[in-house]
Design a protein around this nucleic acid. Sequence first.
DNA 1: AGAATTATAGTAAACGTTTGCAAAATACGC
DNA 2: GCGTATTTTGCAAACGTTTACTATAATTCT
Lengths: 332, 332
Amino acid sequence: MDATIKDIARIVKVSYATVSRALNNKHGVKPETRKRILEEAHRLNYRPNAIARGLVKKQTHSIGLVIPDITNPFYPEVARGVEDAAQEAGFSVFLCNTNWERDRELRYIELLTSKRVDGLIIAPVSETTETLQRFLRSVPVVYVSTTAVSAHESYVTIDNVKGGYLATELLIRTGKTPVAFIGSEEDSHTLQERLEGYKQALKDYHQPVDERYVRFGDFKRETGSRFIKKMVLEGVKPKGVFGENDLLAIGIIQGAKEIGLAIPDDLAVVGFDDIPFASFPEISLTTIAQPKYEMGRYAVEILLKRIGMEDTGSFPRQRLILEPNLVRRKSA
Amino acid sequence: MDATIKDIARIVKVSYATVSRALNNKHGVKPETRKRILEEAHRLNYRPNAIARGLVKKQTHSIGLVIPDITNPFYPEVARGVEDAAQEAGFSVFLCNTNWERDRELRYIELLTSKRVDGLIIAPVSETTETLQRFLRSVPVVYVSTTAVSAHESYVTIDNVKGGYLATELLIRTGKTPVAFIGSEEDSHTLQERLEGYKQALKDYHQPVDERYVRFGDFKRETGSRFIKKMVLEGVKPKGVFGENDLLAIGIIQGAKEIGLAIPDDLAVVGFDDIPFASFPEISLTTIAQPKYEMGRYAVEILLKRIGMEDTGSFPRQRLILEPNLVRRKSA
DNA sequence: AGAATTATAGTAAACGTTTGCAAAATACGC
DNA sequence: GCGTATTTTGCAAACGTTTACTATAATTCT
């Protein structure tokens, strides 16, 4: 059995209200009694029961982090950013992997609200957050890595269309035309934005937009490899390709090499995200970097500010759109 | 304000005890009243307050996962295994990164016990778990990826000495002698075990154990690269090297290439862990695979079994030592 | 029909804290 | 010393549940 405040009170012979005050450094308790209480608490190896405290204070000092899959190399860094910032503020974080399943996402959100987390950081799989509303109600949320949120929500993300533009522009300017686009699921909001950047760049540089050069699959490496091979097999032969994310891009490089294309001479490829592998000399992927760790940090900063406001309704939504950053390596 | 059980009781005009029973599917409440209660609960978008429930049941259905760094490619998979298994059993998991700092580890454990997690899974940075004892007391723990635990603790890990043996043996049998060992911090328990396997293999195959061929640094990729270069600069020229973990091994490959060595002909290298990158064709690292995801799952299985026991004292410790698995790729 | 049984509902205590308010103790001023 | 101001303490309610126990209502049995 864990020692409670009452145990201490009994031993030190004061009321447990006094013990509570002493333990919380409230003023109005005689230094000497406080000392005795603290000593006894230490002797009993007392640990305050955060559950009981949470019940009366209506605050758990916990937040939920809901992401698709920590195993996907994009997320560990944002998780770390979230965790670091939370920890510094005295918050703990529940990690939840939705595995890209919509109902698992919903179940988690329900579970977390049951546990009365003080806030939620969500990288949603659902492309719209409408469905989530019913479950969220009173819990503050900040979305991460999406813009598809209803009017009064906060988020932090990067400028995907600019990123797509930058990637495509580089390819065009280095003469790697025609440039293809290989992306993951077509209905992803993120993909649509990057695709828009791609198209915008093509237009600005007077390149034709040829639908045969744009393909959609999923976010797996193998897919990139398969798609590029399929493409050239069908006779569409890009000189450059913008892979909507790094995993795809790496797959593209691998597939291209398999069919004898030299990177970047025969085919230049640029990715998106700058996952850790991208910088390995063996890969050396030119890519659009997202400040993943910082995104995590910012998200909790916004969230905590929001949690701090007593008057929840009046908090202005915050929308932080970070700058993408072209990091040039050997693949393009 | 969130709806409570009392709100429902008031509206449906029953006592809140009845509401509680209805919501928990306890028998002894008339089907019709139950129906009315459930309907009202749904209408009010009622979410049970797990905090209040936890207080009386002395169970939070949460566990803590304490690891060094989710950003290290070894951990996401075990975290995922933990999370999946926990989720299936209705538990949530707190993610805590100690950043390899001992006192941060301690602080986290203290925090988590304050939050009254039902159990803890720890990949400890401290090479001995003695220090942790005071903080743990009543909380069930299972350690992961270490054997340095006091007598009555449970853990799941792999057979590191066997892994080290396998790696070294392969190198010897393919004629890649002399074989070097490059490891992380010398006082790591894990390292010592792998090193033991290395030495054992050398002995079994009648190879000399030459201390100039074994080096210790840290677990970073750059370190591997630096060390191999330094080694040959000093005139000790192994034909094979066993990198104590994959990051190191990859660094070794990179460093070797930089100084013109061909892999695996001039230098064969085998790593340890089988992190996701290892299988990339550009790397194609021969390595000792750990079943990371399964380790996570097993850890929670053991933990939950332990939590389920009312009589905590009598639970026999469980020690699960998984088999390492040599996966042969191109680097050796 | 009445007793005995069973199904349903309510009362109240408990979980371990925090906190407003009142009581007691101490210090201060003259 | 006595009244007053101030510091230190205690009492009790509250947070939202669960649950043992008791009370009432409904059903079954003879």
